[in-house]
Amino acid sequence: MTMATTQKSTGRPGRRIDLQVIGPILALIALLLIGMALNSNFLSYANITNVLARSAFIGIIAVGMTFVITAGGLDLSVGSMAAFVAGLMILVMNLLTESMGVTLPVILIGIAVALLAGLVAGVINGILITRVGIEAFIVTLGTMGIYRSLITWLADGGTLSLGFEMRELYRPVYYGGIAGVSWPIIAFVVVAVLGEIVMRHTAFGRHCAAIGSNEKVARYSSISVLKVRLATYVLLGLLVGFAVVMYVPRLGSASASTGLLWELEAIAAVIIGGTLLKGGFGRVWGTVVGVLILSLIGNILNLTDFVSPYLNGAIQGAVIILAVVLQRKGATER
């Protein structure tokens, strides 16, 4: 990492950064135009609401991921963690329904369980990475496997479902909303706005960028590097719990395939949005744009028939690689 800083930096930074700022936005606008040209239903209220609501889960997680990556870390476990937390939440709610009936307190306890489980999972990742000192990649690869296996075991290889009546009671959290805007969208917007403020205008955000940029400088500047690092993982875990609270009322179930590849989509969204994978610079609004780009690609492919939706992954993959290529060009240009 110190070797990289010795590279010559004779170019002017101003123009480069501008291009990096507009890049993702231009891509998003282009996608919107393509969507409009290909299908008249694309801009319909139903379609847009659907796209936004479905991207809310990944989006909320990706906001947390932005902090982790900005501080020079990585978390591969979030998809499995979401599945496990969802399964745990459903189990607890089903159990409580037997004694407490189909009532609001059961939902509130379920929500608390999800948030707490996410928090604890984040603490575990964070402690192993910062205190025990194992690479983030290895720790979260491990916990990814553990949580995926645990949810499979909890569901006995099948599906954990919320009781039918309970599902009806909880449903509005996903399908309801205010003034035609559904709750997941509102939640995503709130998390994103708060995230942007924390990243840009608080000491915590500044410390994350400093640690990702050069951990030694941060330590010598009397920043508690380990605490800040730990906090990024805890925040991400908490946001995973929050995403699950929004996700469970959608289908009312969790299985071994819940949240599959979410971690990669979240990381991809962060990178497309212009956050540096090696840390040191992050922007939350970029991540939001990244999430929207990824889900619009899927949506457009579903609405049109000349490219198979099965190629969704291929196109998303190409976009991710392209985004990183553009970033790198900006960084090494003479």
Binding site: T5, V217, A218, R219
Partner: peptide, 28 residues
């Protein structure tokens, strides 16, 4: 260069890094 300053950040961010809590309570 490797323990004193964040070479990729601007002057302001470097100057206030050790003492951010003196610049604002919640927001910087």
């Amino acid at each position: 260069k490797s323990a004193g300053l964040l070479l990729d950040k601007g002057l302001r961010e470097n100057l206030t890094l050790p003492l951010l809590d003196r610049f604002g309570t919640v927001l910087i």
